[in-house]
């Protein structure tokens, strides 16, 4: 009871503090878990691109004592909190008072409660830039399939269809409601399109079984799968395009500088300005996919 009262008092004082801060540029980095490589990398890139007083609280080091996090925010008294990962954002949102927040690498940021002081770098790439990259790597590509749950991804897929028109790629929409419809949808992908674009959709990728079904079925049909994370190479992806982590760190630093200097922010949530590409070149040969060899200079990782 005493502990809860103490925590309430801290949160109350944080709200007061946050509301009356002058902007002197002090930054607190809340890192969800520094031992995760990409979280450490984004912090390194952020720090390299910004000056001033910066401290870090690594939330991966300990069991989360909410009172302690709130206390540390109060002690550090930052003008801006840079949150790496969803856990960090949720805590900063809860205990940060009216302080400015910049987030990065938060996979489910669209489900966050955002305020007028929330800024960030989204975790997904702009679909038009992804589609441009597909066509750049594979000039013969003319259609792709997308399997998704309409409840979660309808809007994103609709935008993708429109973006596809700008790059001459027909996006074939395949809405499903469960695993039973997945196999039918994959048969259509195999019969009517040149590739499947995998999106982080909880219906299409409900579990490991769904992932295995997708890759096995399309491998038999020699249809490549373009993934959004390199972890899908273990299942048989031909390509993965994901945000370039150091670029995300640099963007977050630029955004933080602009917020702290009071500059007008036109775009509160930015797309990542760079991509990281991994490509299985053996699979391109195996599937008979035409590869633009000059585009190899854009590939970060060749998998053989």
């Amino acid at each position: 009871m005493k502990k809860a009262m103490g925590l309430l008092l801290i949160v109350f004082s944080l709200s007061l503090y946050g509301g009356t801060q002058s902007s002197h540029g002090k930054i607190l980095i809340l890192n969800s878990d520094k031992s995760v490589e990409k979280y450490a990398l984004v912090e390194k890139a952020f720090r390299a691109d910004i000056d001033g007083e910066i401290s870090t609280l690594d939330l991966g080091l300990k069991f989360i004592d909410y009172g302690k996090v709130a206390e540390e925010i109060l002690v550090e008294d930052p003008d801006l909190i840079f949150c790496i990962g969803s856990k960090a954002y949720l805590l900063a949102h809860k205990f940060g008072g009216k302080r400015n927040i910049v987030f990065a690498l938060a996979l489910n940021w669209r489900r966050f409660e955002l305020t007028d002081r929330t800024y960030g770098i989204s975790h997904e790439l702009n679909r038009l830039s992804e589609l441009t990259m597909y066509r750049y790597l594979f000039p013969g590509l003319s259609s792709v399939g997308v399997v998704y749950g309409p409840k979660f991804s309808e809007e994103a897929v609709e935008r993708m269809v429109e973006d596809g028109k700008a790059v001459g790629v027909k996006v074939v929409r395949l809405p499903i409601t469960g695993h039973e419809e997945l196999v039918t949808a994959l048969t259509i992908v195999a019969g009517r399109t040149d590739a499947l674009v995998l999106i982080p959709d909880p219906v299409a990728l409900a579990d490991k079984k769904s992932a295995i079904t997708i890759f096995e079925k399309l491998d038999k049909a020699r249809i490549p799968v373009f993934a959004y994370d390199r972890l899908f190479f273990k299942y048989g992806a031909l390509l993965s395009i994901s945000p370039d982590i150091p670029t995300v760190g640099r963007q977050a630093a630029r955004l933080a500088k602009n917020v702290l200097s009071g500059k007008k922010i036109d775009m509160k949530i930015e797309y990542p300005a760079g991509s990281r590409i991994s490509l299985d070149v053996n699979k391109t040969t195996e599937y008979g996919v035409e590869l633009n060899s000059m585009a190899l200079s854009s590939v970060n990782e060749i998998i053989r």
């Binding site: 441009t132 670029t247 300005a273 200079s297 854009s298």
Partner: peptide
């Protein structure tokens, strides 16, 4: 704003 490659920029 430094991006990885020309196309990204």
């Amino acid at each position: 704003l430094v991006a990885p490659k020309d196309i990204d920029a």
